[in-house]
Amino acid sequence: MIQVREVSKQYGAKTVVDRLSFTAKPGQVTGFLGPNGAGKSTTMRMVVALDAPTAGDVLVNGRPYASSKAPLREIGVLLEARAMHPGRTAVSHLLALARTHGISRSRVDEVLDLAGLSAVAHKRVGAFSLGMGQRLGIAAALLGDPAVVMLDEPVNGLDPEGVLWVRNLLTGLAAEGRTVMLSSHLMSEVSLIADHLVIIGRGRLLADTTVADFVTAEGVRVVTAAPDALRTAIAGPGITVTSTGAEELLVAGTTARAIGLAAAGRGIPLFELTPQNASLEEAFMALTHNAVEYEAAR
């Protein structure tokens, strides 16, 4: 289990993670989503105590990670940037990590085999392709047979066979009762593996939900001259209104008809009133639209 509790991280004056809280539970795959620069990698580094939170704390299996007697048994991680020396062979890299915990040589061979790297075990890591490096990173994450597996963009650079391998591996690990967390920008990818979704933007929690709920939470897109007045007009139990632009709202929990009537009753002009049958990807974009850090010029 990973518990992130009111965690903030500042680099200089910039707040990269802002009072973020969520829990990744055992037996589930938690998808960690957000646009570029949302703070996913930063959060993951704080989970394994590589970066210290400015405020708040993180618990891994109920304890601060650094206090663990067998850290590799608690959690295995694949981080965003390659964390290996290009001059070492795959075997030496894994052996060096294994020795810290007295993990046997046979376990090293086992994870190499699992990752499909046995044939290149004695090749230097510097000569590895992006995908092979990624596989070695995943092999390293599994070394200690950990209760929690946390992977930052694991399918990055993998071929279709590799993507399928990761998918099956992670669902298998969760089925064994382990906590699995993976980050991605791609909702479509994550929705195939994850049960639980944690979506962040600019370091803040945007949604903590399930894949099923996220799809049905779609709702109605409304464009209006008076978004604040409309908010008050339609407010009610079970109705959530998200601002997706200066004049745009995404309303969930009610129908386009009810919104139209409420607006007419108050004399609020509507420019658009569209039930959203958006794909997961679109729903994700709508949710994170305002929280996009780096956007292409249009």
Binding site: K69, A70, P71, L72, R73, H85, G87, R88, T89, S92, L95, A96, L97, A98, R99, T100, H101, G102, I103, G144
Partner: peptide, 22 residues
């Protein structure tokens, strides 16, 4: 299976001896 001082030394020796530059 846990971290031991000897284990960390062994790991550092593995890192040291597995580099050509060493």
């Amino acid at each position: 299976m846990k971290i031991t001082p000897g284990g960390v030394v062994a790991a550092e020796w593995t890192k040291f001896s597995s580099l050509r530059s060493t």
